[in-house]
């Protein structure tokens, strides 16, 4: 039996015959109901564009101040870079590294990886060198890219500080909010199974 005609559900391991799924239809596992494939037309192009958008927003979100605090004539603005550097002294340096990774570096790296693997496919080229490894890595770090969780943290901090001083939202707050939307749109446009199959067939040909 040729194993290329079969796919196994990644969640429950049940075998399915591999058929082409029409665009905008969803193929679900017959046993556990997990989504096996959900191809969309122009998904590769869309994901590439959304990733570029997200990268630009991420630069703005990291560089501009997201909150400005003023009390008793003193004022202080904080950008994400300040938040990262806040822990940089003493034993808290680990937290500083973790925060930098989770909210700036990993999301940025993931979007770069998505552009690297999907842009050549959107253009119909052969996959870039090591595209398989890069895409696997991008899938692996997905739960660790936490830029969207940071914005809820900003909201909580806003309430905590509002009793102490006057707080104003900075431009980075809104780029984070936009980043949240773009991240969700990117994730829902990707169909993993289709990406893997396209990578495989393009690199074989």
């Amino acid at each position: 039996m040729n194993t290329d005609d079969l796919i196994a559900c990644p969640v429950c391991d049940v075998l399915h015959r591999d058929r082409d799924v029409p665009k905008h239809r969803i193929a679900r596992c017959a046993c556990c109901g997990s989504v096996l494939a959900a191809p969309k037309s122009g998904a590769m192009t869309r994901v590439t564009m959304l990733s570029v958008t997200a990268l630009i927003l991420l630069v703005a979100a990291a560089g501009f101040p997201f909150l400005e605090l003023s009390a008793q004539g003193l004022s202080h603005r904080a950008s994400v870079l300040d938040a990262v550097l806040a822990f940089s002294q003493g034993p808290m340096a680990i937290l500083s590294f973790a925060t930098a990774f989770l909210i700036v570096l990993l999301p940025a790296a993931r979007f770069c990886a998505l552009i690297y693997t999907l842009a050549p496919m959107a253009l119909g080229w052969r996959p870039a060198k090591n595209a398989v490894e890069v895409y696997r890595w991008a899938e692996w770090i997905r739960p660790w890219a936490m830029a969207e969780i940071f914005i809820i943290g900003v909201a909580v901090a806003l309430v905590k500080v509002s009793g102490l001083a006057r707080v104003d939202l900075g431009p980075a707050f809104w780029s984070f909010a936009a980043l949240l939307v773009v991240t969700v749109m990117t994730d829902s446009a990707i169909c993993r199974m289709t990406v893997w199959k396209t990578l495989k067939t393009r690199s074989d040909s």
Binding site: L69, A78, V84, F87, T99, I103, G153, A157, L164
Partner: peptide, 13 residues
């Protein structure tokens, strides 16, 4: 954790 990071960065008066 992020709230702590934000508060530390912000409240430095």
């Amino acid at each position: 954790v992020f709230v702590v990071a934000i508060l530390t960065a912000l409240v430095q008066l």
